[in-house]
Design a binder for these strands. Structure first.
Lengths: 120, 120
DNA sequence: GTCTATCGACTACAGTTGTAGTTTATAGGA
DNA sequence: TCCTATAAACTACAACTGTAGTCGATAGAC
């Protein structure tokens, strides 16, 4: 099951606030995306079809809930990405990120303590 | 300019061995992909059209050369990925990778020395 | 000299994705 | 009670992707 870029934006809203109706999702996206409510509804329908969301009836509308957790999705996506582009090697990815985005001192510190934890 | 998954496999071959003809690329991919030469040629044509490859005439055939470097592509792809999925934060990505693929002690060591270098 | 395998150029076609529009039912305000 | 805004369901449609096929030219085998 593949979540596309546009669909991911919708998932992000519902990960932050599960149980929204379509119109709420559209409102939440208003600031970032220039989508009509129609577009949002299409994306919601596709995500339900793909099993990424489930619906809960609420009067004559539906409330939407994620069926997969964000952490789960991220883990899967990160694995696929590193396999596809970096032949499964994580270290070069981090090196490229450092180059591309300039890791902040805070980032570096965070990574260091993460590595400390991993060593034990 | 977006390089798709199938196209990326072709690029990988030519990054490793620039200047191959279409039939050579097809042979190189034989072990991993189940593509006919026709499919490989379509992918090559699309990559040329996208500006990711350029051709060099060689008799009545073409030799293909990458127009973008692998390191460049990886940097861009890594940046886009971390923006789309991890809101631009690298540390959580590494945490997920550790979880998803289990970083080896060698990986951890590599990352540590990388961070050392970044600090200076 | 003729035939065949292969080349590049072009075409095909279904599935996915981004981005909506149309239709029909209905809840809630005037 | 009637109108309107909104809901779900369905349809649309072009661009992109994966995966080839056809056509006309030609280099090389015999």
């Amino acid at each position: 099951m593949q979540i596309t870029q546009a669909e991911l934006e919708v998932m992000k809203v519902l990960w932050r606030a599960p149980g929204l109706a379509a119109s709420d999702v559209a409102s939440a996206l208003e600031s970032e995306q220039d989508w009509t409510i129609k577009t949002v509804k299409t994306l919601l329908a596709r995500l339900v079809e793909k099993g990424a969301l489930k619906t809960e009836p609420d009067g004559r509308r539906f409330l939407y809930h994620p069926e997969i957790k964000e952490a789960e999705y991220r883990k899967r996506a990160a694995g696929q990405f590193v396999d596809r582009v970096f032949d499964g090697r994580a270290a070069p990815l981090v090196a490229h990120l450092a180059d591309a985005r300039g890791l902040s001192p805070a980032d570096i510190e965070e990574l260091e303590s993460l590595l400390e934890r991993l060593k034990s």
